[in-house]
């Protein structure tokens, strides 16, 4: 079981969380054409290595937060609540 560092509750088993995938920046729905909106919806980087992603602590604080996780090793760096910037975050 990998452990996810919840910024509110500390490290917990991954089974307490829901995974919401890669963190991307959502375009304004009324400012993009359908093709760009679908690109945002579907096209993920799916990297083999470090990535920033969104998790939800369903069995704990019930908050969304971001973590950095290595998809090859499942190593995880500390989580942070939304609104706190990380140096490695990129928009997609």
């Amino acid at each position: 079981m990998i452990r996810i560092p919840c910024p509110n509750c500390g490290p917990r088993n991954s089974s307490e969380f829901s995974y919401f995938g890669e963190l991307g920046s959502r375009p304004a729905p009324d400012a993009v054409d359908p093709a760009h909106w679908r690109h945002y919806l579907y096209d993920k980087k799916n990297p083999a290595g470090w990535t920033t992603e969104k998790w939800y602590h369903a069995s704990g604080c019930r908050k969304f937060f971001a973590i950095e996780r290595n998809t090859l090793t499942n190593d995880v760096k500390s989580g942070r609540p939304f609104g706190v910037e990380s140096s490695s975050e990129e928009s997609s």
Binding site: C9, S15, E16, S59, G60, C61
Partner: peptide, 8 residues
């Protein structure tokens, strides 16, 4: 004593 957490 006095600790609180929510978990499974």
């Amino acid at each position: 004593d006095g600790a609180v957490f929510r978990s499974s």
